[in-house]
């Protein structure tokens, strides 16, 4: 595994994202947030800061999800469809390096996206703090420029890394349409995964309970990555919880990348 080759592939993915105008979504995000801040400020008192934090985190997650899925499913597929993989793999690049490099490139794109969105949200919140009278500020559950928001952004980013790994995994062996459907499917299931754990309270069939329990452990559990509610209400998120969640995400990503690279390494490029 060569860092130079991984970096070159990753940089190529990032450059492609920039030239395909992926970051235009940041403009939309900023307009959405500023527009919402103006509207919310006129309608509510005391709740405005919470709503903007909620909206900022939800939009970061949603915009990131679309980037992760729609670019993620094309990372490998486009190389195969356009046959550019032929020239690429004639260079001293291992197939595993290609898969990992592509992943790192999109991970970097998402990092820039999430970081800029976080910065925009802090700027909007700073403006709101600046124009709000003291009595309104006092009614806020958490400070406007709460550092805990960074924890929420961090976990959103790790969740997006996991979604990217899911999309990349599916794209190593299926069509983009199917990969998109499966990735979105996993995303939705991932947020309701916890329900599968206690299915025995709903059904009596032992094999079915066993199956749902197996699915619970097999499918990604994305709910823990969403800490929006405690953060906007000013409740603490423990470092242990954050570390455990990141660790879970890292293990899942590693598993998906290893499986995807394994499949890709054995494919015939007809």
């Amino acid at each position: 595994m060569s860092g130079g080759r991984l970096g070159a592939v990753a940089l190529s993915v990032f450059r492609e994202s920039v030239r395909d105008r992926v970051f235009y979504n940041l403009l939309l995000f900023a307009v959405l947030l500023v527009g919402a801040a103006v509207l919310v400020g006129q309608m509510t008192a005391g709740q405005d800061i919470k709503i903007i934090k909620d909206l900022g985190l939800a939009a970061t997650s949603a915009f990131g999800l679309f980037i992760a899925v729609f670019i993620g499913i094309g990372l490998v597929w486009k190389e195969l469809e356009r046959h550019s993989v032929y020239s690429l793999l004639a260079k001293p690049v291992r197939r595993t390096e290609l898969v990992l490099g592509k992943y790192l490139g999109l991970a970097f794109t998402l990092l820039v996206n999430v970081a800029v969105m976080a910065a925009v949200l802090y700027v909007v919140l700073a403006c709101m703090w600046w124009i709000s009278p003291e009595n309104i500020r006092a009614s806020w559950e958490s400070p406007a420029l709460d550092p805990a928001l960074l924890v929420a952004f961090l976990l959103i980013y790790v969740q997006l890394l996991l979604v990217t790994a899911i999309a990349l995994f599916f794209s190593t062996f299926s069509s983009p349409m199917l990969s998109a459907v499966l990735t979105f499917g996993f995303y939705v299931i991932g947020h309701f995964n916890a329900d599968l754990k206690h299915f025995e309270t709903v059904i009596a069939s032992a094999p079915l309970v066993w199956l749902t329990r197996a699915l619970y452990y097999l499918l990604p559990n994305l709910a823990p990555f969403d800490v929006t509610a405690p953060v906007v209400h000013g409740q603490a998120v423990s470092p242990g919880y954050v570390a455990m969640t990141i660790g879970y995400g890292a293990v899942y990503v590693a598993f998906l990348l290893a499986a995807g690279a394994h499949i890709f390494a054995r494919r015939d490029f007809k």
Binding site: G4, R5, G7, A8, V9, S12, R15, E16, R19, D20, R82, H83, S84, Y86, S87, L88, A90, K91, P92, V93
Partner: peptide, 28 residues
Amino acid sequence: IGYLPENPYFYDHLTAVELLDYFGRLLG
């Protein structure tokens, strides 16, 4: 080794110079 595939197709968003630079990096 070097390889020219049949009907080669490369990355739309790159120029010829950028493509060769990218491949040059991969070749070390």
